[in-house]
Write a protein that binds this DNA or RNA. Structure first.
Lengths: 230, 230
DNA sequence: AAAATCTGCGTAATTTTTACGCACACTAAC
DNA sequence: GTTAGTGTGCGTAAAAATTACGCAGATTTT
């Protein structure tokens, strides 16, 4: 069993990555979990992840494991914390570098063809393996703080969206309520939204206006230094 | 040399911690560095840090190395990122879990008795070892974001301080300027400062008022959810 | 058919932010 | 010792942002 191929003068922990995948739909904020098929924690749900190879950095590892285990290629992946409790893995000393990914759930709903991957609403999370419940709490905190500094929400919505979708997203993530008219005014005043005319306009109707995220304008504002306030 | 005492089926990276120590004085924001006495990067300056033991978690390791190499016991230590570039250490694959510490520099100026530890102003940093220049940039960014959510500044000031000291701290960290009167009004309105009457009041004089950080009041506000805005 | 929801387009009151003024005490330069 | 500069306390007025709503038409749900 132990081939003993790699020897070191001092003991070393195993290093893994785990990835908390956030998605957003009409039912609110969700995370994608996979069901563990082997011990330990067989049958429990867990974040996709695995051991880091020696020729890849941690983000590469996180993206690779993400694709291998869920079929997803995430645009937005960001490291948010490293978990190092001595007893966090019953198999032996293991630290995990944790990432969160933001995916446009609406555009990839077919991506959970892989094995036993499934979306869970953030308010309805099952028993998780290892210390993944703690990892999720920290990930949520990181997402909530992040949303104040960067328009991460746009990674979670379709390219073209309606103001109420954006508002629902902010309300779900921050767990607050905004006045519809005030929220729209505030968002529009930031200048990072572009109104979309996709030709679907029908005279005499009252359809909601469609928007896209204006990345150029955001980059410009960011270089000057600004903050998103909500 | 290689005693080969520890063998594993798959290769594992070394795991270290590094600690960016921030201090603040009349000359602005500084970091504490130690001069490397051995290769690699002999003669370069670096953050205190070292290899994580198997029976300690990363924060314990960071605090231990901090005390061993600088004699400092920091109150405030927080993990902010993990660096995993494949080539970041010429001795072999090594990842480092990075922390920043906030210390009351004014109260511990004698603590750099340890070996070759020295404070450097943030605008006057020498050549650093490994990828520590990058680590410093990320640490500064983390500190700047943190200051919006928590009154980290109070960890950097003496227990009793004057409003202009607090303002200088915010201006140094965020690299901005505030109007003296508006800054004071804003800070006081937060309700986390307590005015100190230490009996040194002299009638007919115009000494600056002294304050302490009111931790109880801050904790109360935090539990209700709030943000520091500047 | 009625009720509830979503949308566009506003407005008024309140609160917050910003930009200053003035006087006095102290310090450093001359 | 006089003068210039800095730090401090205590304000105020204008500008900007936030908050809390109203109304009507279209759409969806009951």
């Amino acid at each position: 069993m132990n081939k003993g191929k790699y020897t070191y003068e001092y003991p070393r922990p195993s290093v893994t990555t785990d990835c908390v995948i956030f998605g957003f739909g009409s039912d609110g904020l969700s995370v994608l979990l996979i069901e563990r098929g082997i011990e330990p924690f067989k049958g429990c749900w867990a974040f996709p992840g695995g051991f880091m190879k020696m020729d890849e950095d941690a983000e590469t590892c996180a993206r690779r494991e993400l694709e291998e285990e869920t079929g997803l290629k995430a645009d937005y992946v960001e490291q948010f914390a490293t978990f190092t409790d001595v007893d966090r893995d019953p198999r032996g000393r293991t630290i995990t570098i944790a990432y969160f990914a933001l995916v446009k759930k609406a555009e990839v709903t077919g991506a959970d063809d892989a094995a036993q991957a499934k979306w869970f609403r953030i308010s309805d999370i099952p028993q998780l393996a290892f210390d993944h419940d703690r990892i999720l709490r920290v990930a949520l905190k990181a997402l909530r703080e992040k949303i104040h500094f960067e328009p991460v929400g746009f990674e979670l919505l379709p390219d073209v969206f309606v103001m109420s979708q954006l508002q629902n997203l902010y309300e779900s993530v921050l767990d607050v309520k905004f006045d519809r008219r005030n929220f729209a005014n505030k968002m529009l005043k930031l200048g990072i939204l572009t109104e979309v005319n996709d030709g679907s306009f029908r005279p005499g109707t009252r359809d909601a206006k469609k928007y896209t995220f204006n990345k150029d304008s955001y980059m410009l504002m960011k270089s000057k230094g600004f903050r998103l306030e909500f």
